[in-house]
Each structure stands twice: as structure tokens, then as C-alpha cells.
Design a protein around this nucleic acid. Sequence first.
DNA 1: TTCGGTTTTCCTGGTT
DNA 2: GAACCAGGAAAACCGA
Length: 227
Amino acid sequence: MLLTAIAKFSTVMPGYTSRMWSQDYKPQYWSKYLVWQWLKQMVDMYQIDAASIPFQNFDVDGRQLCSMTCQDFTRAAGTVGPILYHSLNELKWSGGILFLMLTCLYFLDIFDPSCQCLAPVASPTTSSPDTRGTHLWEFIRDILLNPERNSGLLKWEDRTDGVFRFLKSETVAQLWGKKKNNSSMTYEKLSRAMRYYYKREILEHVDGRRLVYKFGKNAQGWRESEK
DNA sequence: TTCGGTTTTCCTGGTT
DNA sequence: GAACCAGGAAAACCGA
């Protein structure tokens, strides 16, 4: 079953597993993206309230993550810090194989292998209640945070201020629709949902610029590491 | 079952 | 005229 999952995963994410089989599966060699994947899995596995974890505190690669002490984890994630710390240590001892297994199963649950564009686009977060759920703004954020996978869908205009622009608005809308099993999604509808975020200060209004949005103070996890 | 949060759908009107 | 923006209203959906 697991081997089947890994095999399928390899077809879905060519190149990805091969890298992992080499050395990337060891926590010390994780990219920032893999660190995020691991965090999401921890949230799922331990049913942690994702809102309680400031994800921006984990904008680090595997080497930096492994150098963090239990105290560092507590500072970064509060009461769940020790859980994360001990879980990471287990992975260090297992050489990360466990993470590879979980990742394969996790991706299989999320991605439709028939989807060519397959955009791990949005490694969806698991913080919200919908199916494998991500909110729209998180979906957008995750595309922006994975530029190697976004195929020019969105672009940072001002990375520091969180200003970004849609390059392929209809394509993003279709991907969002695919994620929500809604084939009739359009940019018109997606943008309406985006505008609702102004009120909640997840997004801020950008004056006079088409297709340009800005993350607001209630949007988390998009900032670059201060390091 | 109800309720609240979120998203979708449709709409009108304005702007670029 | 097309594409986009703004926002009201109502419905749908989902988890608690």
C-alpha cells in the first residue's frame, strides 16, 4: 500500500521523490517548503489548532530547524513547541523516512494525478476546516510562496509589503475551482471573495492598480524570514 | 438541528 | 466594448 503510494507520488511529482530519496528526506536537508509540509503534517497528526502556530516563525530551512533547541520551539510555537521539537528529533533518528512516507500519503490525498498542471500549486494548508482545507487567501499565499511551482500565475510586486499581482487571473480561478470541485469558478467570483477579505483585514486595498492585492495584518505566513 | 463563518453566485454601476 | 473593480444581497456549504 505504502509502496504503491510512493510509486504514484513519483509519477505525480517527478523529480521530487528522487531528490528525497537521496538526502532531502533527512530533516537537515529540508528546504523551507518541506519544513512547511512537515509543520502541516504535525498540525494534522496532533490535531493542533493551526492558528496557534505563527507559521512565519518557521520560515527556515531544515538546517536551521534542526539547530533549534526545545526552548526555541517553545518560543516559536508556544505550548505545542515541545511536541514539534520531539517529533523532529524522532525524524532525525529515523533519517526522515517517516516523513517521506507521510508526505507521499499526504500528497496522494490532495492531488488528482490526472491533473497535468497539478500545481502543487497550493500545497494547501490544513489549518482550516474545509476538505484538506485551505482558505482562498491561503491558497493564494501558498502559490506565491512556491514560485518554482506557480508557473507565472502570481507575482510579488513588493515582497516586503506583501503586495502581489495576478498574472493569469483566470488560470488561478480555475485552479481554485478545481480545488473546490467547482468547474464554474471564474476570476470574477474569485475576486469577489478576495474583496471580502478587505473588511477582515486579511487583504488591504491597493488603489488604482488592476489585479493587485496586498496582504493585510490578519494574513499570516507570507512574510520573509527576518533572518 | 441550528448557527456562524466562509465562499459562491448574481447583480448593478463605475473605472480603465 | 472588454476586462476589471466595488460592494450589496442572498444562497450554499461546512464544521462546531
